[in-house]
Design a protein around this nucleic acid. Structure first.
Lengths: 213, 213
DNA sequence: TTCGTGAACTTAACGGCGTTAAGTATGGGA
DNA sequence: TCCCATACTTAACGCCGTTAAGTTCACGAA
């Protein structure tokens, strides 16, 4: 008899309604705006009901972000076809910036706030760490490694992690500066994508073996 | 009679004690750890007493940061002697990273959180906007302008704001990534200063007119 | 010398937050 | 029919920033 299945399904529906309500608040106004009480209000439950579905607020929002992590991984995956590693690095930068600008609140949570997440080695393995199809950093690193092997980079650069982290830092700088300070009237900001393109191109060019330039 | 002066001095002393107590909490554990009640406790006053000296928590912490903003400006000022604009750019990057690593909590507040600060044009003028000795961005921009004038940069780069913001984004990326994710066990981080040096050098080299390379 | 005043401070409270403990209704299984 | 697990609610705790109202008291004027 499918009674327990129906129960389970109903529970998942409530869970999804919580997620939807939370998403709406989060996307619009960020982490602080997502209040257990407000989410509960939105779905006409008592605040404590949320704790039957999520351990705490952090777990709720973490789940919210999971979906968008996947979308970043998917965007990177679309780039895998690009044969030239240098060109692929440029496209990675572009996709990364796109992601950050499309999901600024997720971006802030993912990369701009201290997360004391201690995951064990097994958990990381399980979550796809090191697998370029699931781990965005691994994808970037693999591309750098390929560029090194194909001798596309200047010979003094040899450490793939150092190079990957430098490239990441570059685009991350553009996105995070934008996310945090776009409303700061002190600065006269140039269009983000222009700055991003300049950073990416300059860094890739700076790393690349000279050709005809 | 110096009575009102004494009163004023005493008031300033209390104000300073508040700032000191708040600083201790802030430097150690950041914005959220600074609680009006905890600060009040530390100086053995009631929480509401703080509001006689500061409009609100934000004003208190803003004042805390002011001092460190000055120290950044001072660090940049020491670089002004460097005659070669390209070398100066490198040194700016280094000083900036140093600042961020020395004051991570201040850094987070200054550059990694959305601050809906709306300042008028006059206020900005008064606070030294555009003056390279007080406005760090202006100092960076002036250096870029000098590099452009001395034809140190490749001819396709012409917009000083675009270039300045790209350079800033680069080092900011390194610092902010470090500040936010240094405890994330997912990543195997290379030493920050190494990454920073690579980003700075690569960008400056990438922007610079080719010479013998 | 007394009195009024204003500044510095406290107490009490408000409305918010995340979260927990304890209680309640209900519907399926024995 | 009764039991009990499950899904929920109510009430509360201890935080938070902040405000309103009250208290204390040294000073300056009368």
């Amino acid at each position: 008899m499918g009674i327990t299945e129906r129960r389970e399904r109903e529970k998942q529906e409530v869970r999804q309604r919580i997620l939807d309500a939370a998403r709406e608040l989060f996307v619009k106004d960020g982490y602080e705006a997502v209040t257990m009480r407000k989410v509960a209000d939105a779905i006409e439950y008592s605040p404590t009901a949320l704790y039957l579905h999520f351990k705490d607020k952090e777990a709720l929002i973490r789940e919210l972000c999971h979906e968008d992590f996947l979308s970043l991984a998917r965007a990177f995956q679309r780039i895998a076809r690009e044969p030239d590693p240098l060109e692929r690095l440029r496209k990675i930068g572009h996709a990364y910036v796109d992601f950050g600008l499309t999901h600024p609140n997720h971006y802030r949570l993912m990369f701009m706030t201290e997360r004391g997440v201690q995951t064990t080695d097994e958990e990381q393995k399980e979550m796809g760490k090191g697998n370029p199809t699931q781990d965005a950093y691994a994808f970037l690193r693999a591309t750098v490694v390929e560029a090194l092997l194909k001798e596309k980079l200047r010979p003094e650069f040899t450490d793939p992690d150092l190079i990957s982290q430098a490239l990441w830092a570059g685009v991350h700088g553009v996105v995070s500066l934008h996310v945090a300070m776009r409303h700061d009237s002190w600065m006269d900001w140039k269009p983000v994508r222009k700055v991003a393109a300049l950073v990416t191109d300059t860094m890739v060019d700076g790393l690349a073996r000279k050709k005809d330039r």
